[in-house]
């Protein structure tokens, strides 16, 4: 592998990793709200969370661009408070990947939270555990396999992000050009087939590995074993 290839792979892993880690607490909080919460507008929130799954990615990217542009609501705030902009930066690519991975992560986590036997939580409460202890000692460990599986799935999704990323932060080699974007760029160059083949191969391997890990975790959970 050439240093250039390594650079692309490393950037993709960095963008995907940061995206998923940043997304994790948000996704878990949303999954918790949707699984356990009873509030008006729950259906609307559910819809909003799932929007990136059904809206054309290019639209998601464009909406992100509007929000994070220097004059946009989030962009102007970032600019004035921190003096930073995420446009054309890998951080922007991570944000795009995070938004696109969110629905998948929330779905998996929500299912695993809903699968936790409420009667065990009741038992913990009668044994003197307050809400937080019930959550930390019963709900969280029992839903952990699903949370981990959802996170890995989200990571796989983030690695494959294309449409929203290229619309939002463009395709800057070494900064926002992740694997899918590099494949697309190589396709535009005459004689770039060999590069496309290499990148595509790596892409398939990484995705397959992530899916396998996710599946293994889910299986262990299915056997009722403790993951950690």
């Amino acid at each position: 592998m050439t240093p250039e290839l390594w650079g692309i792979v490393w950037l993709s892993l960095k963008v995907g990793g940061v995206a998923v880690l940043g997304c994790l607490p948000v996704a878990f909080a949303l999954a918790w709200l949707l699984a356990r919460g009873r509030f008006p507008g729950k259906l609307l929130l559910d819809g909003l969370v799932h929007l990136p799954l059904v809206v054309p990615p290019v639209v998601t990217g464009w909406l992100l661009l509007l929000a994070f542009a220097p004059a946009g609501p989030i962009g102007s705030w970032l600019e004035s408070w921190f003096g930073v902009s995420v446009l054309f930066r890998w951080t922007g690519a991570a944000i795009a990947s995070a938004v696109m991975a969110l629905p998948l992560m929330v779905r998996a986590m929500r299912l695993s939270i809903e699968a936790v036997d409420r009667r065990l939580e009741q038992a913990a409460a009668t044994l003197g555990a307050g809400r937080w202890r019930v959550f930390a000692s019963v709900t969280l460990p029992l839903s952990l396999p699903g949370v981990l599986a959802g996170t890995v799935l989200g990571f796989a999704r983030a690695l494959g992000e294309f449409g929203a990323t290229i619309t939002f932060v463009s395709s800057v080699p070494g900064e926002t050009q992740t694997l899918p974007l590099a494949i697309y760029a190589a396709l535009q160059i005459p004689g770039g087939e060999a590069q496309v083949l290499r990148l595509a191969g790596i892409s398939v391997l990484l995705s397959l590995a992530a899916l396998l890990v996710s599946e293994l975790i889910a299986r262990r959970a299915g056997r009722g074993l403790h993951v950690l």
Binding site: Q122, A125, T126, G128, G130, V138, L142
Partner: peptide
């Protein structure tokens, strides 16, 4: 009074042991 503060020793019909 909240459940956790009642200090009931409740043996449910099913054991409800924590599986983890």
């Amino acid at each position: 009074v909240p459940v956790a503060e009642r200090r009931a020793g409740y043996v449910f019909q099913e054991p409800r042991l924590f599986p983890h």
